[in-house]
Amino acid sequence: MSSFSLFGTSLKNLFSKPATKMYPAKPFEPFEATRGHVSIDIEKCILCGLCHRSCPVGAITVVREDKSWSIDALRCITCNDCVSRCPVSCLTMEVQYMPIAIGESISTFVKPEPKEEPEVEAEAGSEEEAELEAETEVEAEAEPE
């Protein structure tokens, strides 16, 4: 019957699984390449400011004096420009979409002070050595230094 042309489609839809993604009941399923939000590994960042200068919307702010990197989620257009330009690859595009906000939504990351690693290791080593010496060789303390 030509006036009921969607008959075949309707019958198929009636007996097959619904197409709906049932979002809040089932979790969000992104693809691998989905562009959701930008995240940073702040310890690798060298604060060069390339992402700050190249962002087409001005969402990223890098302040060298404070060693901070911040991004305004309400402005970011997920164009992937900062991620592709970063010289040390500390920026990644994550798949989870940006959360909703009630007011402003600026995330700031501050680069931590670098730890004095060689000294820490030497102290730890000397502590262990001192313990070993104390446990095994008591006579060593009597030796003149």
């Binding site: 992104p30 693809f31 390449a33 989905t34 257009i77 997920t78 164009c79 992937n80």
Partner: peptide, 15 residues
């Protein structure tokens, strides 16, 4: 739109 998202990452604005 699923093909767009799988290949480029965006559904509407592809970049």
């Amino acid at each position: 739109l699923d093909i767009f998202e799988k290949t480029t990452g965006g559904r509407v604005i592809l970049s």
